[in-house]
Design a binder for these strands. Sequence first.
DNA 1: GGTTGTGAATGACTTAAGTAGCACAGAAAG
DNA 2: CTTTCTGTGCTACTTAAGTCATTCACAACC
Lengths: 238, 238
Amino acid sequence: MTSAEHLYSKYSSTLSSCDLFSNLKKEEWLDLLAHFHEEKWSKETCIINHQKFLFHFYIIASGRIKMYNVDEISQKEHTLFLLKKGDVFDLLCLLDGIKHKVYYECLDNIKVLAIPMDKLRAWLNNNPIYYKNFLSYSGKIMRTLEENVSQLIFANISTRLLKLLLDNIDKKSNQLQLINDLPNKELAFLIGSTRAVVNRHLQELKKNGSISLQRNQVEIKDTSLLLKELEKQVKNRI
Amino acid sequence: MTSAEHLYSKYSSTLSSCDLFSNLKKEEWLDLLAHFHEEKWSKETCIINHQKFLFHFYIIASGRIKMYNVDEISQKEHTLFLLKKGDVFDLLCLLDGIKHKVYYECLDNIKVLAIPMDKLRAWLNNNPIYYKNFLSYSGKIMRTLEENVSQLIFANISTRLLKLLLDNIDKKSNQLQLINDLPNKELAFLIGSTRAVVNRHLQELKKNGSISLQRNQVEIKDTSLLLKELEKQVKNRI
DNA sequence: GGTTGTGAATGACTTAAGTAGCACAGAAAG
DNA sequence: CTTTCTGTGCTACTTAAGTCATTCACAACC
């Protein structure tokens, strides 16, 4: 079994969940996977060297990585994206080869598939039809970013927090996914606020019975109540 | 002279300033321009029909168009981008063919070059190497959007206004470009604020002598003073 | 000419959100 | 076991920014 075949069978679910390479046939994957290797990064690893991402491109196989920004002056943090299985980085470095001034931190123990940038670029040049996938993926990210900008301008913290919770409720379990075990501080960074303010709003939600709180844990008690709160917020905006 | 040749000679400066199609040879342009036609839109034209951009793709030949968002509830506006000569729209519709919920308004009398979406997509499919241009252009926009998000979270209105002014000062004339004839309200929409607040900050800048104000006009008096103000803001952020 | 409308300037008021501080609980570490 | 550390809950305070209302100046228009 070649290394590519090994990776293909081991990470098939990751590869199929990866929008960026959707519709690749097995032979094409094997061709591409020949250049990949796996890496493990342990929880709380921080990658603050922007240069690193000029040389390798990564696909997350398991665990969460936050991509964040730090204000040089105030040292405030803001989480741009919470990356999970099937997500890739750093797309901006791939596209134009220019340093991307963001930081990465592993929220869990991580497995990634790594490929040298030049190999991936060469592969794309040989298979330019796959640029199309990359374009529609970029489009998706742009839509997300635009949506974020709008939220920041139009919505207050309370609304942004409610949306964060509602957007991350798993339809099946009716509980939070992806963000369910984060401390208040991390929730705050996701919506561009601070721990104290987020906690203030969470206490309100707890008081009306829509959530319950434990250390590093927000439990959803009543989704419909959360939706009602969101509507209340919306009305206040008029 | 074919229609393509006519457009090529008439709009050569626009075409060469268009990043999305950089490095096209004359023959390639003529090939592509065969599908283009020109349109004129008069000042203050609003395009609120999101569907329109599913069918045609536009390159601005002259004048400014603002791409903006309106909060459905509060009716507040936010200007996402001020498009000018050489800019294109709507990229997101091109990439994934999904409606893009933004509005457009002509700030001047406009000339655009228009091409049916399907023709452009077909051209790209026949010349997939040009996907690359589109990708690096998308990258540029993503960087801008990310930068905007950071600004919104880390910087206050005063800082954002100062940056808006400083970023739009023409190096040669030392005066504002692109935004020089906008009323306070439009400046406010560019930084996600309101007329009254922007005016308050502009009055401060006027008081310290860095700018002077007239109806629909901000005149730069002293760039170094503006920079000093910006530094003051930065210090306050610590 | 007068009327209307838009944009600017200004002051008073309200409020959400950021800030600072502290006490407490439980987890982690020794 | 004790100590240390992290996350939470809560209070009091500050402030930037949004809101509202009014006056003024000037441009556009009839």
